[in-house]
Design a protein around this nucleic acid. Structure first.
Lengths: 208, 208
DNA sequence: CCTACCGATCGGTAGG
DNA sequence: CCTACCGATCGGTAGG
């Protein structure tokens, strides 16, 4: 009886572990090869099982990929919200933007297979799945809209800049760093500092 | 005799026309679906021919795609160099950067299937082809390195900013606009003006 | 979870 | 350029 319960518990853990292993391997493959050139057989082999066995855990390829890419957005948002929550209460609006940029880059570059897979596959995914992912992104976009809006309201950022353009400029800069050759890229922290400096202070030399 | 020469000329034109039509259709499909989900049968059907007939014009899928994606880089570089060549001699270093940003965005958004295909497929392409494309990109990168270097040398841009970080920030901002929903995006010209303002002047509100 | 298999589709080729 | 076809591989399923 006890034996049986243990087996059930062990089995449940094994199932969850396998499921997580599949997602991990899928994230890496999706990041490296893209949506359509990542086959279920590739994913299964990487996870140490047969192709058909994936259907014990997922209903379809689209289902599996949806979970990977949704996690990608969720993990970035979670990390950024966590970093913001850890800020001192005295932090200004610009400090929070710098913190968010740093956390976003860290989520992308440190074990960021899920986030990278999302960014690199989003454009090539079936439209039904794309619509689903777009909704998940909007929550994160609102976070940034709030950060920028508060910085403008308290006078830290120019109010003549379209907040949506600024948000897309920042996100674009950050996400594009995935295209950099790894050898050239500095640490996420240094990278965030450089890009924050450029976009907030401006690249123009101020005379005097 | 004249008849025959005309036929030959016509035939040559027809071949070139077909070849160009194939590339055009392939560019659009590659932009929309990505590398691996664009089949040769899709491309052939869009160009009004049978799948096997593509091998009359190209040696392989990789060969066809290489030509599309290489053209993508070349067309952007050409447009930017053309715009810079048309600048007044009195143009300052920052004017030239603004001109280059505008031309880059115009090449991306106005009939920019080739450039968009390059940007969206680059990450998912076979590594041999990727190495080839990287070389083609480096010429364009040097153009930007030159623009930024001159602007720093003449005192228009801060010299404490890493020129490579600035180049990648600008290119990242510009290329990421392809991810915007079309309904939201303003014209390339307005877009370039907004992003130039953000990156050069900075988003911070200057007191006073 | 595996074995064994399905129909569909892929890139590519032979021969004209 | 087309017809007709190749072997390989795809996502997915039946039955255990």
């Amino acid at each position: 009886m006890r034996q049986k319960r243990n087996q059930q518990a062990k089995s449940a853990q094994g199932q969850e572990g396998s499921r997580r292993a599949i997602l991990d391997k899928a994230a890496r493959l999706l990041r490296d090869r893209g949506y359509t050139s990542t086959s279920l057989r590739d994913i299964a082999a990487a996870a140490g099982m047969q192709a058909g066995s994936l259907y014990y855990h997922f209903d379809s390829k689209e289902d599996l990929v949806r979970e990977v890419l949704s996690l990608g957005t969720a993990l970035v948002e979670e990390r950024v919200r966590g970093a913001l929550a850890g800020e001192a209460e005295s932090a200004g609006a610009l400090d929070m933007i710098r913190t968010a940029m740093t956390a976003h880059l860290q989520a992308l570059h440190d074990k960021g297979d899920y986030a990278s897979a999302n960014i690199r596959c989003y454009g090539h995914v079936p439209k039904e799945l794309k619509a689903h992912l777009r909704k998940a992104r909007s929550s994160y976009e609102e976070l940034w809209t709030g950060l920028i809006g508060r910085a403008q309201a308290c006078g830290d950022l120019r109010e003549d800049i379209d907040p949506e353009a600024l948000r897309l400029a920042i996100i674009g800069m950050l996400n594009w760093t995935l295209e950099w050759r790894r050898s050239v890229a500095p640490s996420p922290r240094e990278l965030a500092a450089s890009l924050y400096d450029i976009v907030i202070e401006g690249a123009r030399r101020v005379p005097g």
